[in-house]
Design a protein around this nucleic acid. Sequence first.
DNA 1: TTTTGTTCTGCAATCGATTGTTGTAATTTA
DNA 2: TAAATTACAACAATCGATTGCAGAACAAAA
Lengths: 344, 344
Amino acid sequence: MKPKKRVTIYDIAKKLNLTASSVSRALNNSSHVNEITKQLIVKTAAEMNYKPNTLASNLRKGKSQTIGVVVPRINQNFFANVIAGIEDATYQRGYNLIICQSNELHDKEVQCINTLINQHVDCIVISVAAEGNDYTHLQNVIDHNIQLIQFDRVADNLETLKVVNDNEQASMEAVAHMIAQGYKRIALLEGPQNLDVFRQRKAGYTRALQEAGLPVSEELIIANAWTKEAGAVAVRGLLNMPNPPDAIFASRDDFSALGVLEVATDMGIKVPDELGICGYSNEAFTEITSPSITTIDQHSVYIGKTISNLYFHEMDNKSKDTASAPKIISIKPKLITRSSTTRI
Amino acid sequence: MKPKKRVTIYDIAKKLNLTASSVSRALNNSSHVNEITKQLIVKTAAEMNYKPNTLASNLRKGKSQTIGVVVPRINQNFFANVIAGIEDATYQRGYNLIICQSNELHDKEVQCINTLINQHVDCIVISVAAEGNDYTHLQNVIDHNIQLIQFDRVADNLETLKVVNDNEQASMEAVAHMIAQGYKRIALLEGPQNLDVFRQRKAGYTRALQEAGLPVSEELIIANAWTKEAGAVAVRGLLNMPNPPDAIFASRDDFSALGVLEVATDMGIKVPDELGICGYSNEAFTEITSPSITTIDQHSVYIGKTISNLYFHEMDNKSKDTASAPKIISIKPKLITRSSTTRI
DNA sequence: TTTTGTTCTGCAATCGATTGTTGTAATTTA
DNA sequence: TAAATTACAACAATCGATTGCAGAACAAAA
């Protein structure tokens, strides 16, 4: 079976004894087309099941109405939510999304960026991979006159639009909340410190302790407890100390908080009475554990929407040549206090 | 500042006193280009930071090296994982992914499909929205000669490639496992029955009971318990019955299983001794609750890879004109037995 | 009747890459 | 040395839509 060719504006034109230009103008609702012929064209286009060739249109117009997104992993809750937010807002403006995942690898990230440049996307949204600190590929994006927006994990030395979370502030509030609940020896499970976001969370933890006049003891700060097994061992070690902590801030994510909860339950330690637990990122399950887990919501979908709006705002300004949008937008995460830290 | 124009093959050609065709051939590593000039072209292309215009290339070649994906929600674990799987496999073949979410709305699904057709994607991968049962838009995809692959939630009456889970078999095994563990009155929290997948799970539940000679009692089958609150009420009602169930199959997902676990713990009912619990979809947290939750893994990333392979296989066959790939691939989910159902 | 203006449609170039055909010079063979 | 073959590169058409400019048809004004 021969692949029947798709209907083009030429086919419509031929059928109506017109030219492609008129058809194009009619379908784009442009001026200078007789109202009657316009109706006729629109009608027959629908009848012939005409679908415009966006490739051709984009080539001619020099833009693709497409936004490229590069994230470390599509199937990580936070990123999936951000993407959902971006999609929602951009779709309404008729934009498409091309999604790539870097798998945390620098080389793949570079490849993704190149593909997106080749695709003539109008904008690239990226949260950089954990690996690598060479950002010439991002500079390349800028050089090709493509709008670049970084979010969450950003390359600081690059002057681009940025949407970030105020990790330090949120962490500080979380720890301050625990202190207010009467916890005095608060341990920290830190995230990978080569990433900015986790350093900020640690800084917030430290600052909260200092402002409350509490000591920061290294023995209460646990690194590299990222697998389920290593986490369990580390937490067990903490809780078996002669002078154990009375609260744990699992700053990496809620999964480690859940792990802590399990170890505590297993050891017969009462949460929140004997041990307070706070996680990070407000995974869905934190609400239905018992006790429910205090955590921090990053407004991930909202971050996505903010990114879209930032882009469209920048576009509108560029065309109007007025003042540009703010370069960095900081989203304040929200502390969600639940049973696991509530003892007053 | 003027937007500096991008380098094209004409720019390269002019610089080297050649024509665009030679440049094109050289960059595509095609035959009939002198090795020395080829080297020269490749070298200067790199120097000039040339990036091919995929739009133009695709327009000319009549295909876009792009696959469109439509899912109800990008940020649902299952779908995010499937997408990750698709992305991984297609990326290696130089394909791009355009992602759309229907938000479970039929109208938006239709719009997404139209956008993808306009974009001249080579293939559309879809899991249909819960809403609506009119599939003319999918027929339209086929009419436009675009490969259509359905997965998970499929429109049965449409003859397309399909990748599905054997929900019935998996559910049957899960319930059979519980029966083998000595549970005798097994309740079912069913999912929305307008969706095939949840009807299949119910069928598996029923079949397992029947094959074991156990009665299927309507009072043990709970519908519409989909919010956290409604679920808690329903489960509490179940467990307060004069003759309560000794196990619950939360066939919708692991979140409802976690909800069951919480209610049970709250009521002082011992899991798994007095109550067995089985969820569905193997969310990450099921492994770290206590007790850990028995669940069913859908191999979601693998489903994504299977979809990609199916597409490429079909393409290869189409060009070779040999036998076509099987129309329906059924992936067997894997029962993961954990503490919540293990009492022997 | 001539001029000016308006409204619509056609013509043709353009976006950037690809590719079948043609032309030319170099190389090989008879 | 002439003829045949090969290797390379130029030419030009093409993909489908857009758009500045030109021109035709008609109406209104002078």
